[in-house]
Design a protein around this nucleic acid. Structure first.
Length: 576
RNA sequence: GCGCCCGUAGCUCAGCUGGACAGAGCAUCGGAUUUCUAAUCCGACGGUCCCAGGUUCGAGUCCUGGCGGGCGCGCCA
């Protein structure tokens, strides 16, 4: 596909005097106009003639030089229509050559992209609020890998916070809570109970504070009361149990990280980080706290300096993130470092970048906050992790899989591997649902929407894929006849061929914009085109040459859907 | 108050980074299955693209100012 665009661009450049880069070739909305189009408004201006005249002149000039492409001037546009045989051979040929790698490239060869995503807090269950960072980040991780980048996914666990003190004490007092069998709900129980106790029980609150000081390194274990000296062990144990729970959830969701590095990992670097920033001469002391003033670089940050150290000596979120950032830069020399974190933290990342700029780090533009909108509860209120309101992620997964199971029982009771497919379809619905909208849009958590498997959903794409896979399976069973495909008879499938040809560009654009929704939207549109075609055309029952051509088309479409779904983290079962 | 984001059909959203008559899904109504999966498809209904200016041959898309909603704003993360 891209080869046609390049050829057109080259020829237009020769005859217009415009640089190839500034020649925008677009795909007309209305298919009757052609497959590709070049608007002549700019050109008309430089040639000092009306656009339609420029279009006619250009069309006449280049018509002979584009073999296999019909050139027609239509009003102010020059439209191009690619010969169907050439189109089919080019698109289906490159899909069959590249197979599962079709859509990928080597554009990222030799470059590293660091992605920070998911990053839940140890000691608390993963709830629905973590789902967006996790799913969007993991999708981007796969997409960059597909484009040849070395993608490094980091899980920046929140294992440093003040939630530990209460949990440690609660753990000791509530041995009745079973953390072995069900760590997720067990920890949730302990967490909620400890918050209650801190509010109501002074003795508990005091012990929690001491424990917190011990695990935060403020109070040496040797100096702590006898009862609190094992806190580091308990903390490590909670971390393990908690992480086990996360890993179980990640496995179900198909989430992978390359590195699990919590905030505590960077603790040894905090001192050096502060010294480094001080050495750059950008710090000052304000009300006893160490800060970097940022107003000189960014007027909007005048009243919000970056705090590096509290007046009590403790470091802050920003300090740890800066330590991590320096560490990552030195380790990877990344081409981009993406933080997949909610938009409510925009100020924080703006501050970090401003600190880097003040320090003269020229790699500051490579650091990007890939922000996404809020997950809102019913009634558009912020979904807080307040007690009672937490919806544990695993419970949601169970629910969506149960729904898939019910629907399979209703639609396809004879299916083999029902349980496995239910898992794939249910999880697929959930994952796709989070990727189909533009990142920045707020999402109202609506269980009914997640459980709906019709319309613009993951199961719709999976279903379309399964129908194609079914045709291919039956073709294999019937045995292959070696008829030569009659490409010219794929005329009625031109919209599909054009869409399949666009796939690599869509993947590249989704990566460039860190926007998986571009890929999700593309897949939905492709499925609509395919579904319409499928009701009007047969494949297996046709005469050999037509059958062969359509089989190649189906094979190509199946591959693109499978590749696209896989990139998003949605399974592509052959039957459902 | 200041900073940033969002505003397209009753609802949820696309709209290829400024191009041809603004498109889907859901909901409502009406159709399609002796034939490769009806989790599908076709049709109908539904729009002052929040408002007002501006830039441009051309604006849903860019700029300015409003209006409405959201998020954030020094010792939490």
């Amino acid at each position: 596909m891209q080869e046609f665009v390049e050829r057109i661009r080259r020829v237009v450049a020769q005859h217009s005097g415009l640089a190839p880069a500034e020649i925008k070739i677009e795909s007309p909305r209305e298919s009757t106009h052609g497959d590709l189009a070049f608007p002549c408004f700019q050109l008309a201006k430089t040639q000092r003639q009306p656009p339609p005249a420029a279009a006619v002149k250009l069309a006449q000039a280049i018509a002979g030089e584009l073999a296999g492409i019909a050139v027609v001037a239509a009003g102010p546009y020059v439209n191009f229509r690619i010969d169907r045989t050439a189109l089919a051979q080019s698109v289906l040929g490159s899909i069959s050559r590249r197979g599962a790698r079709y859509g990928g490239s080597e554009e990222g060869a030799g470059q590293t992209i660091v992605l920070d995503y998911s990053s839940p807090n140890i000691g608390k269950p993963m709830h629905v609020g973590h789902i967006r960072s996790t799913i969007i980040g993991a999708a981007l991780h796969r997409i960059f890998g597909f484009l040849g980048y070395r993608a490094v996914g980091i899980n920046h666990l929140g294992d440093f916070g003040s939630q530990f003190g209460g949990l440690i004490v609660a753990r000791e007092l509530r041995r009745d809570v079973d953390l072995e069998r069900d760590p997720v709900h067990g920890l949730l129980t302990l967490y909620q109970w400890s918050k209650e106790q801190i509010a109501t029980d002074q003795e508990f609150a005091k012990n929690a504070a001491i424990s917190n000081a011990v695990v935060s390194g403020v109070l040496l274990p040797a100096a702590a009361p006898l009862a609190r000296r094992h806190d580091l062990e308990t903390q490590a144990w909670i971390r393990t149990v908690s992480l086990d729970g996360f890993m179980r959830t990640y496995r179900r969701l198909g989430i992978e990280h390359d590195l699990i590095r919590g905030e505590s990992y960077y603790e040894p670097f905090l001192k050096g980080t502060i010294e480094r920033i001080e050495a750059a001469g950008v710090t000052e002391v304000s009300d006893g706290a160490l800060v970097v003033q940022l107003g000189s670089l960014d007027k909007g940050l005048e009243k919000t300096p970056c705090l590096l150290r509290q007046s009590n000596g403790m470091t802050l979120y920003a300090t740890r993130d800066l330590a991590a950032l320096f560490h990552r830069w030195e380790e990877f020399h990344f081409a981009r470092c993406l933080y997949v974190v909610g938009s409510e933290q925009k100020l924080h990342f703006r501050q970090l970048k401003a600190v880097l700029r003040r320090m003269g780090c020229d790699w500051e533009p490579k650091v990007e906050h890939v922000d996404f909108g809020l997950l809102l509860g019913p009634g558009r209120v912020k979904l807080a992790s307040r007690k009672g309101e937490v919806l544990v992620l695993d419970d949601l997964l169970d629910e969506v899989v149960a729904e898939a199971r019910t629907i399979i029982e209703e639609k396809n009771p004879a299916l083999a591997n029902k349980e496995r497919i239910a898992e794939q379809v249910g999880i697929g619905a959930l994952v796709f649902n989070d990727l189909k909208r533009e990142r920045i849009k707020d999402v109202v958590f609506d269980k009914a929407e997640i459980l709906a498997f019709e319309g613009e959903t993951g199961p719709y794409v999976q279903y379309t894929h399964a129908r194609l896979a079914s045709i291919l399976r039956k073709a294999d069973e019937a045995g292959g006849e070696g008829a030569a495909p009659d490409w010219a008879r794929l005329e009625d499938a031109a919209p599909i061929l054009l869409a399949l040809g666009r796939f690599p560009g869509v993947v590249a654009s989704a990566a460039a914009n860190s926007e998986p929704s571009e890929l999700a939207q593309y897949l939905l549109a492709l499925c609509r085109t395919l579904s319409t075609w499928l009701v009007e055309h047969r494949v297996l029952a046709e005469e050999p040459e037509l059958r062969a051509a359509r089989l190649l088309l189906v094979r190509g479409a199946e591959a693109v859907l499978a590749n696209g779904l896989t990139l998003l983290g949605v399974a592509a079962p052959a039957e459902m």
